[in-house]
Design a protein around this nucleic acid. Structure first.
Lengths: 94, 94
DNA sequence: TGTTATATTGCGCATTTGCGCAATAATACC
DNA sequence: GGTATTATTGCGCAAATGCGCAATATAACA
């Protein structure tokens, strides 16, 4: 794709259930990337690529701590805003 | 995809620049679907399928008016919330 | 009935995304 | 140097998405 806006990047990042789950696993704060593969039942390579997508969209940030990479939500308001968005769209559906 | 949540549906709907543009074209209120194909320079079939996606995600609603289908945002707060989301993610990027 | 305007759906094909194995990188420690 | 732990990247293949033409549907109206 050529014309990529901040919002479409966010959309792509959110458009896979695994990546939404990863976001929610960060709700309580920073976590080591190494926890995600076993917890989600996928290959570490998928976790790595998924975090890369989330990071490019600006949804998460990372810092190295020795051999580990620690991930956290880019903003504590994020999940609230996402859930608010889901609310707004479900009004008419429900 | 099997495991599809409200948020992943929204993500998919937002993940294409054409569909984001369509959403923004509804900022000022209801519009006839027939305006979008010429304005966006794509085939009407693409507009139809794109609206179907946006509607399934709960982002837009429609009503028939004779031969036309009139589209509007599911909620007037939607674009504000989406832009808020973009803000939250751009803080760290900028 | 037929004609016009708008919208949707079926189809084939191109592009993108997703997956996991294997290889490589990065860091710490001996 | 070597080993262990975690993370990333290269690759091939599978699945999903995007595209537009053509066909069909829907509604209004003469």
């Amino acid at each position: 794709m050529q014309d990529t806006t901040p919002l479409t990047l966010i959309g792509k990042a959110l458009s896979h259930p695994l990546r939404e789950r990863m976001l929610r696993l960060l709700a309580d704060g920073e976590r080591c990337g190494c926890e995600f593969a076993p917890e989600l039942g996928v290959d570490p390579s998928i976790v790595s690529r998924s975090f890369a997508l989330l990071e490019r969209a600006g949804l998460v940030t990372s810092r190295r701590e020795g051999v580990r990479v620690m991930w956290s939500l880019a903003d504590p308001e994020l999940l609230v805003t996402l859930d608010r968005l889901a609310e707004l769209t479900q009004e008419k559906v429900a």
